[in-house]
Amino acid sequence: MPVRRGHVAPQNTFLDTIIRKFEGQSRKFIIANARVENCAVIYCNDGFCELCGYSRAEVMQRPCTCDFLHGPRTQRRAAAQIAQALLGAEERKVEIAFYRKDGSCFLCLVDVVPVKNEDGAVIMFILNFEVVMEKDMVGSPAHDTNHRGPPTSWLAPGRAKTFRLKLPALLALTARESSVRSGGAGGAGAPGAVVVDVDLTPAAPSSESLALDEVTAMDNHVAGLGPAEERRALVGPGSPPRSAPGQLPSPRAHSLNPDASGSSCSLARTRSRESCASVRRASSADDIEAMRAGVLPPPPRHASTGAMHPLRSGLLNSTSDSDLVRYRTISKIPQITLNFVDLKGDPFLASPTSDREIIAPKIKERTHNVTEKVTQVLSLGADVLPEYKLQAPRIHRWTILHYSPFKAVWDWLILLLVIYTAVFTPYSAAFLLKETEEGPPATECGYACQPLAVVDLIVDIMFIVDILINFRTTYVNANEEVVSHPGRIAVHYFKGWFLIDMVAAIPFDLLI
């Protein structure tokens, strides 16, 4: 008679799926529990143990900040960024110097990925580790590398530091407007667009060049630039800015003055950032001319202004700041037409079709709590990747769950009947059967004279019903998954307890 339990259901295979997918890609990662103190490590794979030199037993239950890997060259700011990422709910990448158990130093890129439950609360953290440099290539500990984003994938490793954006290309926007319009339909740009040429040739750093990471940081200074100062900065030398009595002219307006920039070969870094931020506020060169004239017309309804409409929906549905990093990277690809469009465009503009998908598509409701890094690593669709929660398995109709209350009560009843059979069957065979043979035949009273025979008949009927119930009862397979398919249940029961239950259900007393 089957006594099969499996009270692990309803099970959740999400954690096993993450481990299996990460292991298949030869990654070095740990999984931490966000619900406990210090976000203790609950799993670390073999790749991480080989990377740091510690065994799994030495890593388990330690804080996922990996303070046991810190050393003299470990930056405090990087460690603080990892700790801050564990307090938030967004994906974050941090470069930090770690030390192995043998004392060797290596520069590592740590990717902190939160995993949320159905309520939107962070319950786990996945920390992925990628070695960037070994100890002989690690720089000085005073050099802070965590304020910069990861290198873009479309640049060669040897040319990542030679990417320079020439400031004269930004200063000569109005001069290039006529050349853009003359391109017409034969050019790649839309009317009114501004073409910015980027020099990728390796050259020595000069005062006129600005690194790509500095251009990325310009967006942080746009908020500090007032509207009046932006307007004066875009007017140009024809209309000098008016300053109040006793007030000095704005240095932001002076930063885009061609006369002032041409007199000296070098520009201050602050002026460069502010000038680029001011130019980015204009949607095209037409807006710059309109600002000089004193009238700013409404933005025209053409394809170039609607190019950012799908980007707005993608940004609203993005799951991490990696989408913004990807957008900034692609927006700086050289030799393309940049349409400086305000994100607050007309909502009635139709979304044009684009061959290049900048932001990841909208994630469906079932995966809105899973970050983009987890979705990318697992390579699963929205119909396959579940949320991290207890999910009731989908069972067929008329199927009994093996952990249901009805099955528990039924098993206790069958257990009592088995005990009765084990006690009274030998007793009936030894004593009652002998008395029946010696006594007179009682054929007239039937079952009324033999109450134990009636009980034995009921017990046999219950055993037959138990066999039928076992054909529709779920079970737990070797992978700790609840199986509810009727065919698989029948095959599993035939290979197991079916023969024993059938022999126990045969009414031998009635056959004798």
Rank of each mutant, 00 (worst) to 15 (best):
Q335C: 04
T270A: 12
E90D: 13
R252V: 09
S153N: 08
P334E: 15
S351F: 04
L324H: 14
I330Q: 14
L127R: 01
F14L: 07
F163K: 15
N117S: 07
I363P: 13
A9N: 09
R56H: 01
A268C: 05
Y327I: 08
E274K: 04
V113W: 15
C52D: 01
E230N: 05
N128A: 15
F163V: 06
K116W: 13
K362Q: 07
P299E: 07
Y99P: 01
D323V: 04
R281N: 07
A350N: 08
Q75M: 05
H302P: 05
P2D: 05
P297F: 14
L349V: 11
D46A: 10
A260C: 13
S178R: 15
P334T: 01
F68I: 01
M291H: 15
Y99L: 01
G183C: 06
G158D: 05
G103D: 06
S255H: 09
T162F: 12
A211I: 05
P386H: 03
Q335F: 04
R273G: 14
R148C: 15
P141E: 10
A282H: 14
Q61L: 12
D197W: 01
N257R: 06
T201V: 05
L51F: 05
E130Y: 05
C108N: 01
I31E: 01
M133P: 15
C276L: 08
R356N: 11
L349T: 12
N12C: 08
A172F: 01
A160Q: 14
A79V: 13
L173S: 14
T371N: 03
I363L: 07
A285V: 11
F340W: 15
V195T: 15
V113S: 14
G238R: 13
C52E: 01
P240R: 07
A217P: 15
V215D: 15
P386F: 05
S178F: 06
P205G: 14
V41N: 01
G187D: 15
V113L: 14
N257D: 14
H254T: 14
P141R: 11
A78M: 04
A160M: 11
R77C: 06
L170F: 11
N257V: 14
P249M: 11
T371L: 10
K332R: 07
T305P: 12
F125E: 01
E58M: 06
L380F: 07
L167C: 15
A204E: 03
D355P: 12
T216E: 10
T270G: 14
C276N: 14
I19S: 02
P10C: 10
L107Q: 06
P202K: 07
G314T: 09
A175S: 14
T145L: 09
G306K: 04
V215N: 10
D144R: 06
T375P: 05
P347F: 04
T371M: 07
D213G: 06
S266Y: 07
M60V: 12
R92D: 08
C265A: 15
P114E: 01
G47M: 06
C39Y: 14
V370R: 09
L107M: 07
D144E: 11
T65K: 03
W154N: 11
G192D: 15
R4W: 12
E357A: 14
A260Q: 11
S179L: 06
A185K: 09
C49R: 03
P2L: 06
R4K: 15
S209P: 05
E90R: 13
P10Y: 08
A40D: 10
D102E: 07
R5N: 10
Y43R: 01
S140G: 08
R326V: 11
T65V: 13
R280D: 07
D219V: 06
T375N: 04
R281K: 15
S351T: 05
T74L: 01
T65R: 06
A185F: 06
G6L: 11
A217F: 14
L212C: 06
D119C: 06
S283E: 15
D197N: 08
P310W: 10
C108P: 01
G53H: 01
L155S: 06
E23H: 03
E37W: 05
V215G: 12
V138T: 14
C64M: 05
A169M: 05
L315K: 07
H368T: 14
H7W: 11
R366K: 07
S263I: 04
A290V: 07
L343T: 15
S182H: 12
R269V: 07
G71F: 01
K135L: 12
D197L: 01
L267V: 07
E274A: 11
C39M: 08
A97P: 01
L109F: 15
C276F: 04
R100Y: 01
E90I: 08
K135F: 06
L165F: 14
Q247C: 10
P157N: 07
